[in-house]
Write a protein that binds this DNA or RNA. Structure first.
Length: 308
DNA sequence: ACGCTACCTGTAACCATCGT
DNA sequence: ACGATGGTTACAGGTAGCGT
């Protein structure tokens, strides 16, 4: 009888067996797990058939376990307790004590703006939580659905495509607008950045792909103008350094400009034509949606993003 | 007093069929 | 291909009653 397959076995029989071995009494074992005495008697008969052992034998001093049954008592008890733990509703996420790792992905822009606050908050409130940040500026759908990524930050249309993929959730966390910067002491741009100078001067551009056109060029096209992009760099945070020692004009996210302008000696101007901003979102997989730790992380992200 | 058996009933697993 | 639907079957667990 060594080849008992679990798939053909009513696992409730093991619960009945545990009760029987604990009580050594069919009627009390039945009461213990909410069965009637005959039902437990049936269960015992099935167990006897299944295991090829009488398991409990009736004696003058009550139902006595066979050696086989006695040998099963403790391991069975442990196994069922373990099962009960597996099935038990997971404890709600407690940031103070939780051990957990989150893998996040985003561009250096979000790393600079949001992450210092976010990481500080996590360190303070959830010291057992580790964070892995990956650099990701394209589709996150794959890594998210495969579980390699918990949360990604960026533009929804870039991260999950034009038609939000199945099983992916997105939430807008903050809005950003564009400003223009040049170095202090720029030979042309003094008190104001005019449209005429803007079009005439060479530009730097953050372009992940190297494509030298962006939202600025689209806005210019609308009013029938163009500009020359002399330099593209693939990182948001390198761009301000490029204009520090050149006469290039850079249009960049306002939060980045605010951070770097004093440090690098840059002058900040409103764009001389309307340039639409963008909405930063976080995206995650449906599977993580009701995970209490993940929900907590999203709540913290939202709060810190709001405070930006 | 207590466990076992006969018989009955409700349920769920199984399978074929249907519609999308 | 897939899930919904309905009929059939197998069986766990109930009651009643018997046996030790």
């Amino acid at each position: 009888m060594h080849d008992v397959h679990l798939e053909g076995l009513d696992l409730n029989l093991l619960v009945a067996l545990r009760a029987l071995l604990t009580e050594r009494h069919v009627t009390r074992a039945a009461a213990r797990i909410g069965l009637t005495q005959p039902a437990m008697s049936h269960a015992l008969a099935r167990l006897r058939q299944l295991l090829g052992d009488p398991l409990l034998v009736r004696t003058a001093s009550g139902m006595q376990p066979t050696p086989r049954a006695e040998a099963m008592r403790i391991p069975l008890d442990r196994a069922l307790e373990e099962l009960e733990r597996v099935i038990a509703r997971p404890a709600p996420f407690d940031p103070k004590t939780a051990k957990r790792q989150f893998t996040l992905a985003t561009s250096d822009y979000v790393e600079l703006t949001l992450f210092p606050r976010l990481v500080a908050r996590l360190r303070a409130e959830a010291p057992g939580v580790d964070v892995r940040v990956l650099h990701l500026v394209e589709r996150a759908t794959g890594p998210l659905s495969e579980g390699r990524l918990d949360l990604a930050f960026g533009l929804t249309e870039v991260l999950v495509g034009p038609a939000a993929a199945n099983g992916i959730r997105a939430q807008r966390i903050f809005d950003e607008k564009f400003v223009c910067v040049v170095r202090n002491g720029h030979p042309v741009v003094k008190r104001k950045l005019t449209l005429e100078d803007f079009v005439r001067l060479p530009h730097a551009l953050v372009s992940l792909s190297g494509d030298p056109t962006g939202v600025v060029d689209e806005a210019l096209a609308k009013i029938g103008k163009t500009r020359r992009v002399a330099v593209t760099v693939p990182h948001f945070l390198v761009a301000p350094h490029v204009v520090q020692d050149t006469d290039l004009v850079l249009t960049l996210a306002e939060r980045v400009a605010r951070m770097f302008s004093p440090m690098l000696g840059l002058a900040q101007f409103a764009p001389p034509l309307p340039i639409p901003g963008f909405a930063m979102s976080m995206v995650w997989h449906e599977r993580m949606h009701s995970d209490s730790a993940h929900a907590w992380l999203r709540k913290v992200v939202k709060e810190e993003a709001k405070a930006l």
